[in-house]
Design a protein around this nucleic acid. Structure first.
Lengths: 185, 185
DNA sequence: AATCACACGTGAAGC
DNA sequence: TGCTTCACGTGTGAT
């Protein structure tokens, strides 16, 4: 009975409020009018499942998920990524500072070669010790350096100012042990 | 989350095909008398838009997007996050190694105090130089150390083995300048 | 033609 | 009660 082509009244549904242009085509029903391919619906089902699976996996790697909402999850993931990127960039720049540091100069003589290495104090392992020397205003008489297999030794000889008061020096240097282990640089 | 055990649900599925009539509730909708609340459809529209917006933003922060596909995007984002986490964890552990390093020992005498500082060679600024010394098997006769305002100076006196051949030594030490600047440690 | 990926409107479930 | 979020089937443009 209904052989007419009035199936174009469907857009009338959505064009209630200034919907939009719709460059549709005519009579596009799959011949049967009934019964979609059933493949399509299944394929779409799988696509949805895969997507949700990824959402679930994303929740696993992003900490501090504020809400279970999908959009919020994506937002959290985005801010988390940018946060990681920022943190990593900072660390790499710090590394670069440490790597650009050593400045090497070689002087060759007849029987010997003299190698000068200068680096910024900040990133040097003994910086904390040196800084304590400066802060306490003690005189460094001598400083030695030696390297064994895989360890570097620095030895500093410090002169007690005006006749040595061991208690005072102990007061100065006891913080050294703890400072050297705690201080961040 | 919800598992459909009633898979026979295909009754009033598409209102598209058989839309001309209203098989369900009558005159239920407010004011418009026509279609669905129109709020709902608009709300859903906004939700979709927001979600896609987040997807677009996610594409901006994730590099190396293999395909424009949504699922692939999520997959790339996930692997990218885990990659960043891994990289960051490595760097932090390296930092910890550098911070735990300095080992300080203080010996107090009458007129002087001797401070020993030992650190692992790997992270020491002169490690590259020391390693070159080892690799070329030269003898380090003397090594001095001094620190000025904000710079540390290391001076190594190296003895030429068996009568000094400057060309050979130059061959040994010219790589030193470049190596010290390039090598990663 | 067949497949893929997307956006849409719609019913339902949780507050 | 309405508001929000979700899954679903479907239409459609690409490839």
């Amino acid at each position: 009975m209904d052989v007419e082509l009035l199936n174009d009244d469907r857009p009338a549904v959505s064009t209630v409020v200034t919907d939009e242009r719709r460059p549709r085509k005519r009579g596009r029903k799959p011949a049967n009018g009934r019964e979609e391919p059933l493949n399509h619906v299944e394929a779409e089902r799988q696509r949805r499942e895969k997507l949700n699976q990824r959402f679930y996996a994303l929740r696993a790697v992003v900490p501090n998920i504020s809400k279970m909402d999908k959009a919020s999850l994506l937002g959290d993931a985005i801010s988390y990524i940018t946060e990681l990127q920022k943190k990593l960039k900072e660390m790499e720049s710090e590394k670069d500072v440490q790597q650009n540091s050593p400045d090497v100069d070689v002087q060759m003589g007849n029987n010997e070669v003299i190698v000068h290495v200068s680096t910024p104090l900040e990133t040097h392992p003994v910086s904390t010790v040196i800084n304590v020397f400066k802060e306490t205003q003690v005189d460094v008489v001598d400083s030695k350096f030696s390297a064994s297999n895989n360890t570097v030794f620095h030895t500093f000889v410090v002169k007690t100012q005006s006749g040595s008061e061991q208690m005072t020096m102990g007061f100065f240097f006891s913080p050294l042990l703890t400072m050297a282990c705690e201080r961040k640089f």
